[in-house]
Amino acid sequence: MPNRKASAHRPLPPAIAQRLATTLRATRENAAMTQEATASAAGVSVQMIRRLEAGTANPTLGTLHAVAGALDTNMVVLLQSTV
């Protein structure tokens, strides 16, 4: 087996990151939750929520799953408008 160094996952293309950001913020606001409450419920930092909503984060599926759960929705809803 070749000795390979694991690489970081590739960043989201900017257009997709921005659509995810818009959908996430709208979903959070519709749930009447603050960024702080969302972060606490998802078990992530407030900075991560802010970066997601700014379209500058490179989230893992685990992070998206946690944030979606905190907003009482699922990843499909958050990603639906990005494809």
Rank of each mutant, 00 (worst) to 15 (best):
A31F: 00
L61C: 05
A66I: 01
M48C: 13
E29G: 00
A32V: 02
R25C: 13
V44D: 03
V83M: 12
M33R: 12
S7H: 10
V44K: 11
N58F: 00
S7Y: 01
L20E: 01
V44E: 12
A17I: 00
G69F: 02
E53Q: 06
A42W: 04
N74V: 09
A54G: 15
P14N: 03
N3C: 04
P13E: 02
V67F: 06
A21W: 09
V46L: 15
I49C: 00
A26Y: 12
T34D: 04
N58V: 13
L20G: 11
V77I: 03
G69A: 08
R28G: 14
T27C: 14
Q47V: 09
T60A: 08
T73Y: 06
Q80M: 13
L79D: 15
T27K: 08
V67G: 05
V76Q: 09
P11A: 07
N58E: 12
L79Y: 12
I16S: 09
T73A: 00
M1K: 15
R19S: 06
T38M: 15
G55S: 04
A6E: 12
R4K: 04
P13S: 07
A26H: 07
S81C: 08
A66S: 13
A32S: 05
A21T: 05
A68K: 03
G69M: 11
V67Q: 06
E53G: 02
A37N: 11
N74R: 12
S45L: 11
A68I: 01
